Simulated assay, not measured.
Amino acid sequence: MNARILLALFVIFPVSALAQGVDKLADKLADLRFEGRIEASMRSQVANSVNGFLTDIHFTKGDRVEAGQLLFSLSSVVYEHQVNAAQALLDRRQIELAQAEANVERVSKLEDRGTATQVQLEDASARLALAKVAVDEARIGLDLRKLELASTTITAPIAGYIDSPRLTRDAYLKTETGKPLAEIVQVDPALVSFAHPYDSLLELHHAAPERIEEYLDRFAVHVTLPTGERYEQTGKVAFVGTELNSDGGLQVWAEIPNPEVILIPGLQVSVSIELKK
């Protein structure tokens, strides 16, 4: 369980000797109603990590996208050439390394015969060490160029619903602008946020005190829509705030399945909680 949750609950629910049973707790819960607000469970802004012309947009506003799905394509010609140049440089450095290795072997044999000096052998060994470093440097450069090329295809970081693209085709994208290309909102599951009065929480705990790590698992969360219809899915408490709000309540967030996207972020709902059966 999240350490933040445990810390908050430890402060709110001190051990009590006033246990009166689960029935009393259930009665108190049945009378509680809260004003709640639906929130997205996750939001993620889509951005580019390399510069380039935007050549294609692979979605339309409101589409549901999956994590890893292709969203934008940037012109890749320059980056392809850079990869080819980096590969050629690596090939050259590897040839130079092979030559340096052969030279060390040759000078070492000559030094054994007395026809080459120790200084010449040390010089050949130093050139070999430099050749190895050059190969490593070229390999890293190639990896970086490949990463840049891969970044010309921009994919969805999370699953969810995507809004409209902020730019049009043929626009030139610069990483330094820091402007997002689109935003993805994850609403299944959705979060419902509501404030639970602190004094009521204490009464509930006095009615049936128990181990803190088991407390949250006791509650089922229900949502009633503005039409008065009770939402069919049942939620569970996900996490709580660590401070009381100005009205003396503790903010609570519950996670609730939303496969048909009936719960839209910003929707005002009524929230009730009860003991799980």
Rank of each mutant, 00 (worst) to 15 (best):
D31T: 13
Y79K: 12
F10W: 12
D31A: 15
Q45H: 06
S73E: 14
L32Q: 10
V11W: 15
A67R: 07
S75F: 15
F53E: 06
E80N: 07
A30V: 01
R33K: 15
Q69I: 06
R37A: 15
R43H: 07
A30G: 02
L29P: 04
L25F: 05
A40Y: 05
L7M: 08
E35P: 09
S16T: 12
L7C: 02
R43E: 05
A26F: 03
I57A: 03
F10K: 09
Y79R: 08
N48Q: 08
A40K: 03
E39Y: 10
A30I: 00
L71M: 04
V65E: 03
P14N: 12
V22G: 02
R64A: 00
A8Q: 05
F34M: 09
L9N: 00
R64Y: 07
D56A: 12
S16H: 04
Q69A: 08
G68R: 05
F59K: 03
D56C: 07
F59T: 01
S41N: 14
F59I: 01
F34E: 09
V78D: 09
V50M: 03
F53P: 00
D31F: 09
V65F: 02
A8K: 03
N48M: 07
L18D: 11
L74S: 05
V65I: 02
V11A: 13
F13K: 00
V22P: 01
K28E: 08
D56H: 12
I12N: 00
I12K: 00
A47Q: 04
A40N: 02
I38C: 14
S44M: 07
G36S: 11
L71G: 06
S49I: 05
T60D: 03
A47S: 07
G68Y: 02
V46T: 00
T55C: 03
N48Y: 06
S41R: 07
F53V: 09
Q45K: 11
V78R: 11
F10A: 08
L71E: 08
N48I: 10
L54E: 07
F53R: 08
T60H: 03
A67P: 00
S16P: 07
D63A: 01
S41L: 02
Q82Y: 10
S44K: 03
V65S: 01
V11C: 10
E66N: 01
A26Q: 14
L25M: 14
V50K: 00
S76F: 15
D27N: 13
A67E: 04
